[in-house]
Write a protein that binds this DNA or RNA. Structure first.
Lengths: 190, 190
DNA sequence: CGAATTTCTTAATCATGATTCATTTTTTGA
DNA sequence: TCAAAAAATGAATCATGATTAAGAAATTCG
């Protein structure tokens, strides 16, 4: 019984008992300790992960060997390297647990099967991806429209809870600047 | 008969003659002269636009009154302010024709109806939005991983045709820097 | 065709945030 | 509980790309 996922799907489309059963048989659940990797660069991203509880980060290592975080996923978010997942080509990303985390995951073949046996999931994921598009348009405007400092201040006011779950150096990476610069801003704030 | 769109949908899902008919009755076609606006800030984005021929840009005006282009759409791409389109709230974006352009468009109510009468479109748009997600992950890595100069050089080698269709100052805006800086890079290139 | 508009370029100065390197504080787990 | 590791801070210097202000070149269209 993977209730968190089913509950989430039910927000967007009704499901019959049989459909729920089919979904439950296609997904698995996994507990991942803090710092565990669900994906490492060089390997194919085999699963799409739904966070039941906890927090994951998706990042790559740039030429200067700095970790660049491009996405976080918390409760009720899906996360994957979509490109690697679809093409079955090696990923350039890492997905790592920021906290002890519980995920429900589904592999590519199982998901393709499910789209056929439970077509309502086309609607569910259409809406999920559509929201990703919206989130991306918002984030892009956010990034273009403000200086690094404004971005940090906005972010810390908008998501105070999140700030406390994640080390500051990860926030800095996600917002596109260095931890040193973040310290400088925070020092000013007082 | 909106063949370009139907052809595009058929790449992802089969359609019956009846379904094709229903889609054709839900969309409209429009020719837009260069510089014409399909969306202006302050107005609700009523349509999702599919480019048959030509090129559109989506941008907003930042606090310094500079136009910031966040997306282009060329042949066979959809473009909209997804947030405004979904929520029916005023947009902060402009969508403008960069060249004389031909678009097929669909309004929100018509699209919601179509999702019900032609559920295969759930699959079509699920795949479209999924590709948007992939494109976004790629673009993000691209932006984080390289300096402005490298980004320009990569872009001009990867999309030489596109570079010739669009004024350079728009490329600069899309890549996140100023036209002056672009000129500097190009001067070096020789 | 030719004036007006749009687009592109050049150059000097300036500011933001990176880099480097060291130190302090906090957290973790044996 | 305390040593080791992880995370955060601080300061000095540096580099990238913005800003400002002209002016040149190219395109458009009446």
């Amino acid at each position: 019984m993977y209730n968190n996922l089913i509950q989430h799907i039910l927000k967007f489309t009704p499901l019959t008992a049989d459909e729920i059963e089919q979904i439950n048989q296609s997904v698995s659940i996994q507990k991942v300790k803090k710092k565990t990797f669900l994906l490492e660069a060089g390997k194919v991203c085999k699963s799409n992960y739904f966070v039941v509880k906890g927090c994951l980060r998706l990042y790559f290592v740039d030429r200067k060997l700095t970790e660049q975080i491009t996405q976080f996923a918390i409760e009720n978010w899906w996360i994957t390297d979509q490109d690697s997942f679809d093409s079955r080509q090696p990923s350039q990303y890492y997905i790592q647990a920021v906290e002890d985390t519980e995920v429900i995951y589904i592999n590519k073949d199982a998901l393709e099967q499910l789209y056929i046996s439970v077509p309502k999931l086309e609607r569910y994921f259409r809406i999920i991806f559509q929201r990703v598009y919206t989130a991306w348009q918002r984030r892009t405007k956010f990034l273009y429209d403000q200086t690094d400092e404004e971005r940090y201040r906005f972010f810390s006011e908008a998501f105070p809870g999140f700030m406390q779950r994640v080390p500051l150096y990860m926030i800095a990476s996600y917002l596109g600047f260095t931890p040193q610069f973040l310290s400088k801003i925070r020092a000013k704030k007082v």
